[in-house]
């Protein structure tokens, strides 16, 4: 582990905040895409059932 000295809060805080925000963005976009796909499949399925 590198010795961050007196700047440990700045460096670790940056990595924690940056990586957390990236992770939230990726998870949110993937979950939203999955939900949209399922919803569209559901609507198309119901529509095909009617025809």
């Amino acid at each position: 582990m590198p010795d961050l000295g007196k700047y440990a809060f700045a460096v670790l805080g940056s990595y924690a905040a940056g990586l957390a925000l990236l992770a939230i963005l990726v998870v949110w976009m993937v979950l939203r895409n999955t939900a949209a796909r399922k919803r569209l499949e559901q609507i198309e399925g119901a529509r095909d059932g009617q025809n």
Partner: peptide
Amino acid sequence: IGTRTEIRIRRASALL
């Protein structure tokens, strides 16, 4: 990924 999501949401809204 985001564009795929938006296309699907738009298509679902149009069908409804």
